[in-house]
Design a binder for these strands. Structure first.
Length: 309
DNA sequence: ATACCGACCTGTCAGC
DNA sequence: TGCTGACAGGTCGGTA
């Protein structure tokens, strides 16, 4: 389901709702597929931790967590004194300072960790009241100190949950941050089709099938075009196209196809801007040629045979 | 090393 | 109405 703009939208929504809240307890379902870390380790890592910041790395949702240092945590978990300290830090965290929050809040004696959620194709995270009906395919429920619940739902179970005490390395570079020079270096000399390279998360992280097709259309490059045959100038154009497409999509809250909704249950609107994705047989918006669909590396790929070469 | 391909799962929708 | 097959926004591991 979600690519970079959708994950960005969801992470921002979650940050607004749960940053500053504390995980009191965790329930994890019996299905193993969504878990990259053992269930017991995920639960033990989350429980008692305050959610400092929810953000995005590639297509991953990252929860920055902070709790009492491990040595004192087990002993003091239920003591009232611990709660008072958490209450203070939660208040401070509600002063939204985005990136600054981490350093402002960080206490040297605190234990930190990151909880990583990858939504796969059909994963969703919702914040709701405990009385809300538990949706089919709910795999994790975190009870929060505020009384609400944070739930992970994923019918197809392509999503992944993991925890990283030492911090998480998503690999690749962020397409919205990458310089033109670095971008060109990523693709120069590769024999692979440019679309396969765009989808390779070890190079750029966050670009998926929709935004790869849309970026290639704007850059005038066919999906099968070998990266090594693309000129420096065309790569520069692709660099601008990728960033433009992603930024526009984020501004519109992502693309809602079938059932995607953000943390608020709101749909995105970027699907209305798609120029090739999902438009097989329809006229190109530039030249009226029928949009073609081919399968490349197992993925549907859409392009205009006249505008792209 | 690189590049396809199927596998992992469930749900939905078009076509018969 | 109901069955079958194709397809879905992601990633991984095996094989050539």
């Amino acid at each position: 389901m979600p690519e970079l703009p959708e994950v960005e939208t969801i992470a921002r929504g979650l940050d607004t709702r749960v940053a500053g809240d504390t995980v009191e307890s965790v329930w994890i379902g019996s299905r193993k597929q969504p878990l990259k870390s053992p269930a017991g380790v995920i639960a033990a890592t989350l429980e008692g931790k305050r959610i400092v910041w929810v953000h995005r790395a590639g297509k991953h949702i990252v929860f920055d967590l902070e709790g009492e240092a491990r040595a004192s945590q087990t002993a003091s978990r239920t003591k009232k004194g611990t709660r008072a300290v958490r209450g203070q830090t939660r208040q401070a965290a509600s002063l939204h300072g985005s990136d600054e929050r981490w350093s402002d809040q960080h206490r040297p004696d605190a234990e930190t960790a990151q909880w990583i959620v990858h939504l796969g194709m059909t994963g969703r995270m919702v914040v709701c009241e405990p009385a809300a009906e538990i949706a089919k395919h709910t795999h994790l429920i975190a009870k929060l100190a505020s009384g609400r619940e944070l739930r992970f739902i994923d019918p197809r179970m392509f999503g992944k949950l993991s925890v990283h005490p030492g911090g998480f390395d998503p690999g690749g570079v962020e397409p919205l941050d990458v310089s033109e020079e670095r971008f060109v270096e990523l693709f120069r000399g590769r024999k692979t089709p440019i679309k396969s390279a765009l989808l390779n998360q070890k190079l750029l992280r966050g670009v998926g099938n929709i935004y790869a097709d849309e970026s290639l259309f704007r850059a005038g490059l066919r999906p099968r075009r070998r990266a090594a045959t693309i000129t420096r100038e065309q790569l520069g154009k692709l660099h601008r196209a990728v960033r433009e497409v992603l930024r526009e999509a984020i501004a519109l809250g992502g693309s809602s196809i079938s059932d995607y909704v953000d943390a608020d249950g709101e749909e995105g609107f970027f699907q209305l801007q798609h120029r090739v994705y999902g438009r097989e047989g329809e006229p190109c918006l530039v030249c009226r040629t029928a949009i073609r669909r081919v399968v490349l590396a197992g993925r549907s790929s859409h392009y205009c045979s006249k505008c792209q070469e």
